[in-house]
Design a protein around this nucleic acid. Structure first.
Lengths: 127, 127
DNA sequence: CTTGCCTCTGACGTCAACGTCAGGTCCTAG
DNA sequence: CTAGGACCTGACGTTGACGTCAGAGGCAAG
C-alpha cells in the first residue's frame, strides 16, 4: 500500500500548515515523527488529525507548553487528578473566551446599528 | 468638580491596563489625549469606556491597525459603504472565531469524557 | 549520471503589544 | 522649599510561533 506513511511536505499540504510549523511542533514535543535511515521524517496518516487538533488548540489561544501538557493525557488516556484539573481549566478558559467574544460581537452589532440608523445622528455616505 | 479629567495613572487603574499600554494606544492612534501646559496627558471620564472597548477588540484578535480603522467610524457615526463592509467583515470574523471555539470546546469535552470514562480503556490514577 | 525537487540542520529575522530602564521634569504635601 | 511620587520622552528588551536563508545531503526520472 502506498501512502501508509508520508514525508513532511505531504503532511504539510494535507494538514494545511507549513513544513516549518511541523518541525516546530516536533521541537515542542507536540508531534512525534519516525525517521528513515537517511534522517527524513515520516508520519502515519493519523498525524493529519493530530496536526489539526494542535491547530485547534493554538486557535483557542493555548500555548505550546499548555498543549504539550494536554496532549499526553489525550494519547495515554490516563487521568490523574492534575490532568483532569488542567483539562477542566482550559475548557473553562475557552468558555470565558466564548462569552467575551459574544459580548464583543454584541458591542459591534450595536456600533453597526448606530452607524446604519440615521436616527442616531449618523451620516450615511453613498459612493 | 474634580475628576472631570484625569491623568494617565488614574485612567490606567480605572480601566485596568498599564500606563505603557495607554501611551501605546495613543501612539497607534486609538486614544486621543489632551495635554497640560507641561505636556502631561489628561483624559475625560469617557476615556475609561473607550479603553475598555479597545481591550475588547484586542481580545477578539483585532490588530491595532484594524481597530484604528474601525474606531473612527464608531466616533463619527459616519457610514460609508467601506466602513460598513469593514464592520461586517470583523463581525463575521468574530462569528467564525466563536464557532471554532465551540468546536474546540466540544473536542475538549470529548477528550475529558474519554479520560474520565474507564470504559474507554482509560486508567484513572488517584493521588 | 545528472537534473531538480524534497528534505535536513542550524541559526538569524519578524511582528505585535507591550515591559522596562534611563535620565529628566512636574506637582503636591508637609 | 524640599522630598518623593507621578509623569515625560526615547529606546532597547521580551515572547511566541513561526518565516527565511544558507549549505549540504537524499531520491525518483530520464
Amino acid at each position: 500500500m502506498m501512502g501508509v506513511t508520508m514525508r513532511i511536505g505531504e503532511l504539510a499540504t494535507k494538514s494545511g500548515v507549513s513544513v516549518r510549523a511541523l518541525r516546530y511542533y516536533e521541537e515542542q514535543g507536540l508531534l512525534a515523527a519516525g525517521r528513515s535511515d537517511s534522517g527524513q521524517r515520516h508520519y502515519p496518516e493519523p498525524a493529519v488529525d493530530r496536526v489539526q487538533l494542535i491547530q485547534m488548540l493554538y486557535g483557542a489561544g493555548l500555548s505550546s507548553r499548555t498543549i504539550a501538557e494536554l496532549l499526553p493525557c489525550v494519547d495515554a488516556k490516563v487521568s490523574t487528578p492534575e490532568s483532569q484539573a488542567r483539562l477542566a481549566a482550559e475548557r473553562a478558559r475557552i468558555d470565558e473566551q466564548i462569552t467575551a467574544l459574544i459580548h464583543t460581537r454584541d458591542r459591534l452589532d450595536a456600533v453597526i446599528a448606530s452607524t446604519v440608523d440615521p436616527a442616531n445622528g449618523c451620516t450615511v455616505v453613498h459612493d
